[in-house]
Amino acid sequence: MRANTTEGPVIEFRGVTKAFDQPVLTGVDLTVNSGEMLALFGPSGTGKSVLLKTTLALIMPDSGDVIVDGESVFYDGAMALERIRCKVGYVFQYAALFDSLTVLENIEMGIPEVELKGLSHREVYDRAWESLEHVNLDPEVVLTKMPDELSGGMKKRVGIARAIVGGPEILLWDEPTTGLDPVNTATIERLITKLSDELQVTSLLVTHDIEGGLEMCDRVAMLEGGSLRFVGTPDEFRASDDAVVRAFSDRSAAFAALDTIDVR
């Protein structure tokens, strides 16, 4: 677990409510403090990714607001949203690399446009190179490749490189280890901890990997049935006598154990 560095809220979800065909989020209030890493757990379909996406207005809530670094994502106008997006790096579940662009061009897209205008080609290249080194990829090998020439684990790491190249203050991770084998999962988890420490960023991590989340994060929250069921430290989560929390964590532990054995 990382050192807890709470210095006030950086992300505040205030009464976030969203329904598609049926309610997904019902009045979620959650705060992520400066410098901390918060893991968001919950069964599939409980709105974890939806909540994460409201942080950058990728999904509009039906009601409620999200405050990032003191500015409202939805009510402070386009310029505020642009400023927020410059501060946040978003790692997508399946990397979401742009198919038609090379790895270099993909990472270049992660540099805020205002900053990009003042950079030479050489400087952009160097920034991309550096961010690939951060995620333990050999820039010489991957920079000129197209996304479909990369393995799943490499794509995720390029997605992380794109998220960090702009020097974000906040990192949002949407199930970064989904679909990876145990070795790649461990690699990505180590990377998440390393980057959060090295870059001194605030992180919000949506994950199904309970053990990994408890190991890496300062606090954890659990969504269930569209609302928060639990918020606290990893130790409090482990010791929780809430039946739903226990059932969820035990079942996940069981599935996590299944991942480590050959079931063929």
Partner: peptide
């Protein structure tokens, strides 16, 4: 691009 979240990725990087 929409179903593979590439459109969301564009928004997320401020494009």
């Amino acid at each position: 691009m929409k179903v593979s979240e590439q459109i969301d990725a564009l928004y997320s990087v401020g494009r």
